[in-house]
């Protein structure tokens, strides 16, 4: 297996699958996307991260021909989105945020219909639909009407439909929204698998962990503008963090936060479940204060480690937004 760094360096040298320059979109006079620029390399998982309303879906709609840009240019798989989008569509697949296949048709019929629309030869249709249904663990459900499938299964059939013509590039718009933990996890594994098979992935999400886990590079979009674009690790390094460590006591006393904040060398304490994040002047002064406190109270230290900046920290610092803003679902939920 290639080391990860080497894999990413190879992707950096790859050709651009998407090139966007000054892309702008107004809706009824309101600026939805504000002159963005970025490139997506062949074979990478490119994340488009931002809160709802940031312009992620609008950007996907422009790149896939569902909406016309107000200004700027973009090339998708070498085709200009204004003049050659129909040709580009033959080579990319789209998984919209909402699973919008036909309720009246079965899983199999939906896939066959998509194969027909994309011009998959008739002798190939049965083979490909069968393969995809097996890949997604839906072969037993092939005769079930789309309306009767669970949300996770609908999502899987929608993704299968986007892959029926074997695209080089796959747009995934908030693929795990509304899925339970198990389905979301299996979908993320599938995205990684597809990428390993050579499919370039353009992923929009407002889940930071998802972007961190899946993406080679992440563009952070806020109010229609790309405010940062880099690898997850590089984005985390942008965080000017004060020394921090993560500790868990056994047991955890009730007044632990206020007690610790009174200790010399500790500036502030935040709780994250059973763990405590402590920030201070330096690592030695932090550890000294923690051990001193544990000894005074007769507590056992269950675990202690230095805390590295997370993508959440990077997001908060780069955007100046709260994490809560990211977690708000569409419609304010």
């Amino acid at each position: 297996m290639r080391p990860l760094e080497q894999t990413f360096e190879m992707k950096q040298d790859s050709a651009n699958v998407i090139s966007v320059s000054g892309l702008t979109k107004y809706y009824d006079g309101l600026l939805a996307v504000d002159g963005i620029d970025f490139e997506v390399k062949e074979g990478e998982v490119f994340g488009f991260l931002g809160p709802n309303g940031a312009g992620k879906t609008t950007t996907i709609r422009m790149l896939t021909g569902l909406s016309q840009p107000s200004a700027g240019t973009a090339q998708v798989l070498g085709h200009d989105i204004r003049t050659g989008i129909t040709l580009a569509k033959k080579e990319f697949g789209v998984v919209p945020e909402v699973s919008n296949l036909y309720d009246e048709l079965t899983a199999l019929e939906n896939l066959v219909f998509m194969a027909q629309l994309y011009g998959v030869p008739s002798d190939e249709r049965v083979k490909r639909t069968g393969e995809l249904l097996k890949t997604f663990g839906l072969f037993e459900k092939k005769g079930a009407r789309f309306s009767t499938l669970s949300r996770g299964m609908k999502r899987a059939v929608t993704i299968a439909a986007a892959l029926i013509h074997r695209p080089k590039l796959l747009f995934l718009d908030e693929p795990t929204v509304g899925l339970d933990v198990v389905n979301a996890r299996s979908l993320r594994s599938l995205i990684q698998k597809l990428n390993h098979q050579g499919v370039t992935i353009f992923l929009t999400t407002h889940y930071l962990e998802e972007a961190d886990l899946l993406c080679d590079r992440i563009a952070i979009l806020v109010r229609g503008q790309v405010v940062a674009l880099d690898t997850s690790d590089n984005l985390k390094q942008l965080v000017k963090s004060e020394p921090a460590c993560e500790v868990r006591f056994a047991p955890t006393p009730e007044e632990v936060i206020s007690d610790l904040e009174k200790q010399r060398g500790i500036h502030r304490v935040e709780s994250s479940g059973a763990n405590l994040h402590l920030y201070g002047e330096s690592m030695p002064s932090l550890t000294e204060a923690i051990f001193q406190y544990a000894s005074q109270k007769g507590l056992e230290i269950a675990s202690i480690s230095s805390a590295k900046p997370t993508l959440e920290d990077a997001f908060v610092q780069i955007t100046g937004m709260s994490l809560e803003a990211m977690l708000v679902e569409k419609g304010g939920r």
Partner: peptide, 14 residues
């Protein structure tokens, strides 16, 4: 309304 028409428009046809 359901977005199925958009799905058709994503196919390589006009």
């Amino acid at each position: 309304r359901l977005g199925s028409l958009e799905r058709l428009l994503l196919a390589p046809i006009s």
